[in-house]
Each structure stands twice: as C-alpha cells, then as structure tokens.
Design a protein around this nucleic acid. Sequence first.
DNA 1: CATGCTTGCTCAATCGATGAAGCAAGAATT
DNA 2: AATTCTTGCTTCATCGATTGAGCAAGCATG
Lengths: 339, 339
Amino acid sequence: MNRTTQTKRTTIYDLAELAGTSASAVSAVLNGNWKKRRISAKLAEKITKLAEEQGYALNMQASVLRRDRSKIIGMIVPKYDNRYFGSIVEQFEALARERGLFPIITCTMRDPALELEAARAMLSYQVDCLIATGATDPDRVMELCAAAGVRTINLDLPGARAPSVISDNYGGALELTRRVLANCEKEYGEKTPLLFVGGRGTDHNTMERVRGFRDAHAEAGVAVDDTLVQTVGYAPEKAESAMRQLAERMSPLPRGMFVNSTISLEGVMRWIRRSGHYADRVPQLGCFDWDPFVAMLGDHIEMVRQDVPKMLEAVFGIIDSGDTELTVVQIPPIVEKMG
Amino acid sequence: MNRTTQTKRTTIYDLAELAGTSASAVSAVLNGNWKKRRISAKLAEKITKLAEEQGYALNMQASVLRRDRSKIIGMIVPKYDNRYFGSIVEQFEALARERGLFPIITCTMRDPALELEAARAMLSYQVDCLIATGATDPDRVMELCAAAGVRTINLDLPGARAPSVISDNYGGALELTRRVLANCEKEYGEKTPLLFVGGRGTDHNTMERVRGFRDAHAEAGVAVDDTLVQTVGYAPEKAESAMRQLAERMSPLPRGMFVNSTISLEGVMRWIRRSGHYADRVPQLGCFDWDPFVAMLGDHIEMVRQDVPKMLEAVFGIIDSGDTELTVVQIPPIVEKMG
DNA sequence: CATGCTTGCTCAATCGATGAAGCAAGAATT
DNA sequence: AATTCTTGCTTCATCGATTGAGCAAGCATG
C-alpha cells in the first residue's frame, strides 16, 4: 500500500519488522533512552532513519496509557475576549512547551457547570496538573482533581485548598483609585467619590479591589456610599444596565469611575456614548486591566496592567518545584502611565 | 486506602470487582451501550451508582487507544491577542463540545516551524480532524495530516489541498475602501488615494484585500501608487515603522488609510499619536477586523467584522457532512456602521 | 577450561477500555 | 422431550508503547 494513501498509521511494530528487529528496540530508540537500554548506535541510526522515511508518529494514547506521567498540563480559562486572558493562554502554552509538556486549554465562558465539566474532561485525559484560571469555584475543581491525585494551581482567582498565583489586587486598586481621584481633583477642583463598576461582589479579586478603592477614598478623606459600588458582574451588558439604572436614581453622576476589567469597560463606554450623560465633560476613568486601544481612548483613562509574564513564571515555578504548600503568591500589577 | 487520598485511579476493573461482575459489563454500562449488549437495567443501575460513589473517571487514553475514532478535534491558531481569533477559538470550542468532540488548540505565534510542530503533536494525540486557522503554510500541514489519514480544513486563510472557509476578503475590502474614500471626500472635498498598511503581501487574504482596495480606487477614478501599499506584516511594530519610514519620504501623507487588522492598527495608532503627523486633522481610517474599543476611538474609523459564527458553522458543516471537496467557502464579512 | 562480566539485543507483561465470540440458564416452540 | 430462541452475562484478544527480566554471544579473568 502506498504510504501517502494509507489509512493505518505506522507503529513501532511496523518499523521493527522493516528493520528486522524488535518493537522494544524501536521504542527505546525513538523515545531516546536507547543508550540506557544498550542499543547499538548503528541500529539506533537505522531505526531513526526508517521512522523518518515512514513518517512515523508516536501514538500518545498508547504511550501515556503505559507511562505513569502523561506530560499533559491543562488549563481552564473563562474567556478569550480580552488581552489579559489572551496573554495568559499564550504564555501558558509557551512555558509548557518549553518544559516538554503538552498544554490543553478549555474556555468555560464563566459558567460554573462548564468549569467542572471541563475539569472532569481534563482528568479523563490524564492531565498531570491543572491550572484553574479565574475559576468561579476553584475549590470544587481542586476537590475533583485531588480525588484523582492531580495537583491544581489557581491563577488569577485564589482558592483555599491549592497554591494560588494572583495579582496584588488591593495594591493595584489602591494606586489606581488614587490616580483617578487625583485626576478628578485636578480637573474639577473638588474631591468627590468615584463609582466602582463591574466584577462579582463575591469574588476575591473584586473584594480586594473594592477594599483598595475604599481605602484610597479614606486616605483622601472622601466618603463612599454603598450605592457607588456596583459589582454587577463582568459582562458589558451588566455594566451598561447598571449605569442606566444608576443614572435614573442619581444626579449628578460621579465625576470618575473605577471599572473592574476592560470587558466591563466596554459596557460602560457604550453607555457613556449612547446616553449622552457625560456629553459635556468626560468622566475620569480607571480600568483594572489593560488594552492597547483603551489606552488610546484619551488622556482621561488610567489603567492597571496585570503582570502576566511574572504570574506565569510563578505558576511554573510552583510546578517545577513540586510545591504543594497553600501559598498565595501576589504579583504586583503595573500601573500604566497615562497617554 | 481512603478514596480521597488515593493515588491510583479507579478503573473499570475496580468497579467490576466491587459490583461482583466483569469489566466488560462495566464498560458497556458506562459508555452507554448496555442495551445493545443486553445488560440488565438492574446491573446497569448498580454499576452507575458505584461509579458515581467511587468518583470513577474514564481513562480517555485507554479508550481512544482501543477505538477507531478519537473524537478529538484540533485547531492551530496564530495568536490570542485580538477579538477575531479569540472568538474563533471560543466558537470552535463551543461547537466541538456540542458534537461531543474534545477540542485541543495550539497557538503558533505565527511561526511556521511551530505550526508544523503543533500539527505533528496533534497527530500524535490522534486527532480525527485538524482545523488550520490562519496558517502560513496550510498545504504543508495538510500534507502531514494526509499522511496520517487525518482530514484538514483551512480557516481564515485558504489552502490549495483541503476545503477552506474564509471571509469574502475582496468584497469586504471593496466596501471598506469605498466608505473610507467617501469619508475622505466628505471631509476634505477632494478625492485622494488611501494608504494600505499591514498584512503579508504573500498571503491570500492580504492579496484579495489589496485587490478590493485597488478596485474601489479605480471605481472612484483615483490612481494608487505602489508605495501606498505597505504589506509589511501584521505586527504593530512593523506597521509603526512602516509609517515612520513613509513619513520621511512622503508629504503630504495620505488623508486616509486601510489598516489590515486591528493588530496592525495598534501600531498605526501608536505612530499617529507619537509622531504628531496627523495632529491637525485625524486621518480617515478603515480597519479590516473589529474591536469594541477601536469602534469607540472616534467617528473617523470604519470597520469590517468577519462573521465568525457563520465561518465556524461552515467549518462544522463540512466536518459533519464528511465533505472532502476542495471548496473555498467565502463568508461575507459585516461592514459595521460607524460610531 | 570454567567462571563471570559486558554488550546488544528479545520476550512478555502491562497500562485501561472495548467488543466479538461464546456460554449457561431459562422460556418458547414443535 | 427435543429443539430453538432469548436473556444476561463472561472470556479473551486487542489497541501501541513501555520496561523489567532474561538470554546468547563475545571477551576477560583466574
């Protein structure tokens, strides 16, 4: 049968027959430990050449089944619609590959049920390790994995039962709020409280950012009413409708805002443009997360950029060291200069 | 040993022993064809309950090894740093999961070598089908896959040897150019040629877009000099330096531009802001690709949004039908209204 | 010349799931 | 009573790679 139209793939048994040797020798040569198995260089070369000629490709399913470690590393991630998660995934793939690990990623659309289903699927594929990024219920994921003897690391959002790598949300929010407050004062000559929009009131990051937001206000001697904290979810639509409702109940609207993610900012900006509420004077904005085009939107926006390279180095640092301590590593985000 | 601290995973043999039955029966029950195998409902229920209790998870490596089809579907994708590829990946995952397929995705960073390496890795994992998205050398990928009897579908960029689903690049570019030309005329009262920036001069999409760009100019009776077509690559830095160099050689600069992707636009916008060249009057822009924040950048930007949902429906349509015809399906992109 | 060591391999069990083939017990048919 | 059919399982080979154990030939040592 012609090699290019074959339907059966070449296996080590095929190569063994062609080389007039055993499958065992072929396996040893192709997975690199032929020296340890005392295969002669001559035979090794012959087999290698044959494998190349025949377009042999290892069957990972068979290989993983036999080995104790799969060298597959999984990640679940909420969405691919923003630069933050996009760069997390890019970095993750690069660092995994560097270590000879095969990365598989699943996007959960922020759906807790999908999160667990995805984790289960990854366990079925025998991942050695699972990174839960921005998981709504990291501890539940961790539990599933623990039952299968698979380690977990939380990224972006911390969990109580596995090592976590997150941004210094409090610190970033504190600094961001300070800057926006300062911009407001410069622009309007008075100290007024900002509005906090976006994020889930129940997630750790949002709570920490709200804490930073409040503390920066306290520092400046500005009181923050509870209605000014609108943790209505991340989706643009939710931020948009929160703004709409707020505008009905409050006048004048706050001079500035702390928007919790670019994705919420999308909704806020849409509302600002459509409603015309800030037509006379643009609000001073702060956004927790970075996007190149947001940075170009004007000189009234400050941004915090989470330090994705450092975060992923920390994650792989934990993986490499085999650490299982329940540490929470906090990586300082970068507060971008305006303009 | 306690179930929660175990290191060995539960297998069908463990369940068989606990249920006092055979592994074969357990397998039949758990993969759903116990009716066909004439297992009694009573035993089925018992096994199902046991599996649940023991937190049994199928070992996919073993299962795939035995079956003829893996139900794994692969995709290679250039980058995750823009909305277009982000939504492609999100849609891909969703549609794959809908069909009971397990999606694995690899990002190639636009590196041709990584592209092939990634394809090889996916073949090792026995993918049933591989989607090559925006591949620099789709035919080489296709060749690799064909040798393993795996079907390929090209997405975004067409290949000569596998079915392809792409945008109607010519039509989109034609309409986009028309609009930007019209905006320029409205704004400046005269018909002048636009600048085309970004993309690779060798890739099909860019060539088609340039063709649309030229034809729209011809329609309007405007001549396009070759120096006005700067297909210098997609990266922001490349677009930026192309602008810098152009500004040294050309004065006045074009009134408007056709920017070939948001990622190139990032560089163009950066240059515009830094150089101050368009400080007096902003250029009229057209961008082939959509981004929510770009849409907010001002009323001088027109955008073409590729119809990702339709494109992926087309891809899965081909997969579902088992088609192998060398068709190129062209999906019309959506030309967004300004503002 | 017997013994032990080294070199260069092969054999066969194994990983976990799958499914064709087969078998035993009871029910239905002739 | 003998036969066929049906039900409800079990047995066992198989997928492809891995690896501990073992074996034969060649060489060195006492």
